[in-house]
Design a protein around this nucleic acid. Structure first.
Lengths: 202, 202
DNA sequence: GTCTATATTAGGATAGAC
DNA sequence: GTCTATCCTAATATAGAC
């Protein structure tokens, strides 16, 4: 906790350090993304993360007192950089939007590896990211459901489609194809997802 | 390596030890399945595995000199116990067979956790199980493709279905729904897979 | 085959100087 | 904020007795 200033003292102006800290934190988060992506959360070490950006272990710990704090920041960051292209879904429909996101993701293999490994690790309720992933799939499914409803209204998706259920199915297919692609990058994930969307949305 | 007997010496008869060894190995493999399932391959330790069956670490190492040897045995064993119900697919169709396997799998959560975690870890080509999982998905996809062809011939599955591609899609959907169910066991995986099969097989 | 004991390396975390 | 140095724990692996 920060100590409170006595009322008489000059309040220190220090906007520089804050900016520097934010930048450092970002560097650490990016390095952690790489390490967790290749070794998992349990398998990845803070030492590796520190080494990757030429920092000491102590400094990393200074910014993120516990390893789980760092994981939390990594996941937050992953969701921000994985900006879901909502606008495209409104104008072009959910299918086009998903395929665009698939193409975008094919360029960020490390991040996908991270999410794949940690999401399965996190199926243990004691895992620090357990709730985060449970919420993530709930939000993903209901987000897709809303987009599907919109498309159904406009006749772009069959009225037979159950939005909530199909949201779950789309998320599942997405993850599953991504795993197979991660294992074997010669797989045509775009084409496979395209075919899946045609079937699932009729 | 075992030393060769001199021709003059009595060949020792020892069938007991072999059987005992096989049983021990099986015990170790089952403990390793639990540990790898809850902590992953990197995160799981040989000590935990030994402790779980009241054995010393050294004895475990005696049977499996390297950790990766143990993982290999665990995966072999997982595929055997996860006996794919081929007979059912011939008589009742691929959809019934898959749903039966889904129900069976819902009782073996630890094994599914293991496969989920290790398969994503193994997307790193340097992982000891990398090739095993690449082959596994190839075999799974082509196996499903054969079953689909059979069902198409008999009119149980739409002739519009591309067997090889759809085999991939089914495997992906299966994995994806399983992950969501592992994270949140209140998910109705049977119902979701049923709906997915109806859509994917028309 | 199994054990105790130990080697060696590495993990997360903390103390205290600068 | 960053460092060196250190603590404590645990990892894989090996040596050698029984």
């Amino acid at each position: 906790m920060t100590t409170t200033m006595p009322p008489s003292a000059q309040p220190p102006i220090r906007r520089g350090p804050y900016a520097k800290t934010a930048q450092r934190r970002q560097e650490i988060v990016e390095a952690a993304t790489n390490v967790f992506a290749s070794r998992g959360y349990h398998g990845g070490s803070l030492r590796d993360i520190a080494r990757q950006i030429g920092l000491s272990l102590t400094s990393v710990v200074h910014h993120f007192p516990a390893k789980s704090d760092l994981l939390e920041a990594v996941l937050e960051n992953a969701d921000q950089t994985g900006g879901w292209t909502l606008g495209l879904a409104r104008t072009e429909g959910v299918k086009v939007a998903i395929l665009a996101q698939v193409d975008f993701n094919l360029e960020r293999k490390e991040l996908l590896r991270l999410l794949a490994i940690v999401s399965s690790e996190a199926s243990d309720p004691a895992h620090p990211a357990h709730q985060w992933f449970v919420d993530r799939y709930d939000n993903l499914a209901s987000g897709l459901a809303k987009l599907l409803e919109y498309d159904i209204e406009r006749g772009r998706v069959s009225a037979d489609v159950d939005p909530e259920l199909t949201g779950r199915l789309l998320a599942a297919m997405w993850d599953g194809l991504q795993l197979q692609w991660l294992l074997d990058p010669t797989q045509d994930m775009h084409g496979q997802m395209d075919a899946a969307l045609n079937r699932l949305l009729q």
